[in-house]
């Protein structure tokens, strides 16, 4: 899941968190799929951020986050000074294993979601393999 500026919202993205206005009123439910009309409505309500499923937007430079493949790629850098420390090397390996698992899980969930969408859109071709998308 990712928090994105409403300006970058695209039809087809799904809300991972309900959209709540300042006064606490929920205006769109979790799980709703965005359409052009809904995105326009978000902008007119001056809601500038939403939380969507997956990690659809490349937020360059914003650093940190829960794109687990990105985390995995950062582990060697973060632990770079501890390669001679036995305990910290073990922690390093374990954390890599953790983020590798989480990244795989995240990717699998996204694939499953895409396949489900495909089933809805074109019921006849559901059996065909869907290529893995980047998380």
């Amino acid at each position: 899941m990712q928090k994105i500026p409403t300006d970058l919202a695209k039809p087809g993205m799904k809300l991972a968190r309900p959209v709540v206005k300042d006064g606490g009123i929920t205006v769109m439910a979790e799980g709703m799929e965005l359409t052009e009309a809904l995105i326009d409505r978000l902008s007119s309500m001056k809601i500038d951020k939403i939380v969507v499923h997956g990690n659809p937007v490349d937020m360059a430079g914003s650093g940190g986050g829960t794109a687990f493949d990105e985390r995995l790629a950062r582990m060697d850098h973060l632990f770079r000074h501890y390669s001679n420390d036995k305990w910290m090397s073990r922690v390093h390996d374990r954390m890599k294993e953790y983020f590798r698992f989480k990244a795989a899980q995240q990717a699998a969930r996204q694939r499953a979601e895409q396949e489900r969408d495909k089933l809805v859109e074109e019921p006849g071709t559901a059996g065909e393999a869907v290529n893995g998308e980047e998380a």
């Binding site: 950062r74 850098h77 973060l78 420390d85 305990w87 910290m88 922690v91």
Partner: peptide, 19 residues
């Protein structure tokens, strides 16, 4: 939090995790 690099603590390293 350093594993996630959420915010910035002043450097880009992990902290030593004391057993």
């Amino acid at each position: 939090v350093r594993l996630f690099e959420f915010g910035t603590s002043g450097d880009d390293q992990t902290a030593y995790l004391r057993p």
